[in-house]
Computed example of a mutant assay.
Amino acid sequence: MPMPNEYQTASQQFDRFLEDAREALDLTTRNQTYTCVQGVLLVFRARLTAAEGLRFANELPAVLRAIFVKGWDISRPPEPFLTRAQMAEEVAHLRQHHNFSPVTVIEDVAKALRGYVDLKAFDAMLAALPLEAAAFWSEDAGPFEQATLDQ
């Protein structure tokens, strides 16, 4: 069996994703963009169980999947979802002296990510996670804030 295409083209796909994320975030460098993307993934991951996180990771492109799971301490219990603004603040704390995350970092990364996943499978997977998961990956803050306030 030949190597799956997702692994053969993983680096090129990640480069395209970073460019789209850079544009969505209105940043100037790949390093700034990478920090924002990594921060969003880690903030989301902190709110999932290992089983939920692996379901999520299975829908990500290969390099983003690796970033999402690297260094995960699965013995830690999930943190509660907060408001999007509070979680965007958490994103900004990753490498905080070199972090240029805008307040819209979560929705900006979500917008870019949605161009690199199978949307039908991605949304079905999110529907199987806690209610806030789908809202977190929404491209606008409205549904997330409402879902969080309803809890």
Rank of each mutant, 00 (worst) to 15 (best):
T104W: 07
V105N: 12
D140I: 11
M87E: 08
N99C: 05
F81D: 02
T83G: 09
L94W: 05
K111V: 06
V105Q: 04
T148K: 13
T148W: 14
Q86D: 13
I106G: 00
A92N: 13
F122A: 09
F100Y: 15
A112K: 01
H93W: 11
F122T: 04
L113S: 03
M87Q: 07
L131Y: 14
L119R: 15
V91W: 07
A141V: 15
F122M: 00
V117P: 02
Q86A: 15
L119P: 03
R95Y: 06
S101K: 13
I106Y: 04
D73R: 14
A127D: 11
H93V: 14
V105W: 06
L94K: 04
M87C: 06
L119T: 15
V91A: 09
A85C: 02
I106S: 02
D123E: 13
G142S: 09
D118R: 03
W137Q: 05
P102Y: 11
K111W: 06
W72M: 12
F81G: 04
R114S: 10
E90C: 11
F100H: 15
R114A: 11
W137K: 02
F144K: 00
P143N: 01
K120Q: 08
K111G: 04
F136K: 06
L126A: 06
L113K: 13
T83N: 11
A112S: 02
G115M: 08
E90L: 14
D123R: 12
H98N: 14
R76Y: 02
M125T: 00
P78V: 01
W137Y: 00
R114P: 01
S75V: 07
H97A: 08
E107N: 15
A124K: 13
L119C: 10
A121Y: 02
D118F: 00
Y116W: 04
H97L: 13
W137V: 02
E107Q: 14
S75G: 13
V105C: 10
E79P: 01
A127I: 09
A147P: 00
T148E: 01
R114W: 05
R114H: 08
A121T: 11
F100W: 13
S138R: 00
E132W: 01
R76T: 11
G71W: 01
E90D: 15
R84D: 04
A88L: 09
H98W: 12
E132P: 05
P78M: 14
Y116R: 03
E90W: 01
A88R: 06
D118V: 08
F122G: 05
I74A: 10
R95V: 11
N99H: 12
S138Q: 01
Y116I: 08
A112M: 04
E139G: 04
G142C: 05
V103W: 03
A85K: 08
T148L: 12
D118P: 05
F136L: 03
H97M: 12
R95Q: 11
E132V: 09
A121F: 00
V117E: 03
P78S: 08
P143T: 04
S75D: 15
A134D: 10
D73G: 14
A110T: 01
V91R: 01
A133H: 07
E90Q: 15
L129M: 13
F144R: 00
E90P: 07
P77T: 11
Q146T: 13
T83W: 13
F100T: 06
A92L: 06
L119Q: 08
D140C: 06
E145R: 15
F136W: 10
A110R: 03
K111T: 09
D108M: 11
S75Q: 14
L82N: 12
H97R: 15
E107D: 14
F144Q: 00
G142R: 03
